[in-house]
């Protein structure tokens, strides 16, 4: 009889525990100690920033001593794999699969190679990528290097500093003689990367579409069973507008037309005031801003390294804390997500 009651209650017990506390950032010897909080600036390659972190987390967990994957390399591999000429708007799952079949060029080497062109153009990495995308789009339309370059400059000028010197890149671009971002980056990075690239032992990604309330339950389960983060593709509007619901209905994957698709990692869970919250690690820098000031977050004291599990804008915006991730309601995840990716 006792066994029967226990078995009858088992699903309830399992369900009740599904939001038990878990925090992959504050866990002892967390791989996140070696993976910084990224700031993707104006580069629209969120999928690559998230995939790079997901892979680095697993690699460090398996014994690698430091982060090794550069988001721009991930973006390049994704685009090259499907013969896409631009790197914007890719897929984390597809990018990870592409990296599994290829090799990695170490983070530092990619940053150094991109830095050479960024330095010549007197801009930053994201601005360089933006210009290349604009220039190559224009080339596709006009077929003229001169016109594409001038139009590329004009369309980049909306958010580039006046001192940008993209003209210094003309000899390099003419010399490469390819006019799409993917081959340009390939030719820019490969000479060095070919020499030093290494094959990494990567796990296969698995994507799950959001098909109802089980979506978040599966994420919580993965956190519990695998102690690993989960990538989510979602409408980021809710960071500034907490009542925002990106999904048009719980039965379809259709999203509102004003949804800003973004990709981040779910790295924890907890119960707060009788509701389940998930911990999201974003790629918008480690400070307090208009998107995280409404939320309670996990902060790290910059000098002592001590974590604050429930820090807030009003009490911790004093320059001494790094904002590592923020807590949001599980319902927001279900109402705004399109899909998730885990590593098997």
């Amino acid at each position: 009889m006792k066994l029967f009651i226990f078995l009858a209650l088992l699903p309830t017990l399992v369900f009740a525990n599904s939001c038990d506390y878990k925090n992959l950032i504050t866990a002892s010897d967390s791989p996140f100690d070696k993976i910084p909080v990224y700031d993707q600036d104006g580069a629209n390659i969120c999928y690559a920033f998230t995939a790079a972190q997901l892979l680095d987390y697993e690699l460090i967990k398996d014994g690698l001593s430091s982060r090794s994957i550069h988001p721009a390399w991930v973006a390049l591999k994704d685009a090259a794999n499907i013969n896409k000429s631009e790197i914007s708007f890719g897929s984390s799952r597809r990018a990870i699969e592409a990296l599994m079949n290829d090799s990695n060029c170490h983070y530092d080497l990619v940053a150094k190679q991109l830095g050479v062109w960024a330095y010549k153009a007197n801009v930053k990495e994201a601005e360089l990528l933006r210009f290349l995308e604009n220039f190559t789009n224009q080339y596709k339309k006009t077929g003229s290097f001169q016109v594409a370059f001038q139009n590329g400059l004009k369309t980049t000028a909306d958010w580039c500093p006046p001192h940008a010197t993209f003209k210094n890149l003309i000899p390099e671009l003419e010399n490469l003689a390819v006019f799409a971002t993917t081959p340009i980056l390939t030719k820019l990075l490969m000479p060095k990367c070919e020499e030093f690239k290494t094959k990494l032992p990567l796990r296969k990604p698995h994507m799950v579409n959001n098909e109802g309330p089980n979506f978040s339950k599966n994420i919580l389960k993965h956190l519990d069973q695998k102690n690993s983060p989960v990538e989510v593709s979602y409408c980021a509007n809710f960071w500034q507008e907490p009542s925002y619901q990106g999904r048009l209905s719980s039965s379809t994957l259709d999203l509102k037309s004003d949804c800003f698709m973004h990709s981040s990692l779910v790295v924890g869970k907890r119960m707060m005031n009788n509701s389940c919250q998930v911990l999201i690690r974003n790629t918008w820098g480690n400070g307090w801003n208009k998107t995280n000031e409404k939320w309670n977050c996990v902060c790290k004291h910059k000098s002592t390294g001590k974590f604050e599990d429930n820090c807030s804008y009003s009490t911790h915006n004093n320059g001494q804390y790094s904002v590592e991730a923020c807590w949001v309601g599980e319902d927001l995840l279900n109402n705004n997500s399109h899909s998730s990716v885990i590593l098997k």
Binding site: D39, Q40, D41, G42, A43, N44, I45, C46, Y47, F49, S88, F89, K124, E125, A126, E127, D158, W159, C160, P161, P162, H163, A236, Q240, F260, M261, H262, S263, S264, T283, W284, G285, N289, K290, T291
Partner: peptide, 22 residues
């Protein structure tokens, strides 16, 4: 345009034509 997960604060800086430094 915030598509592709662009950082909203960084985009304000770009919009003001200031140099954005990471």
């Amino acid at each position: 345009d915030l598509s592709g997960g662009r950082n909203p604060s960084a985009m304000v800086c770009h919009g003001l034509k200031l140099t954005l430094v990471i």
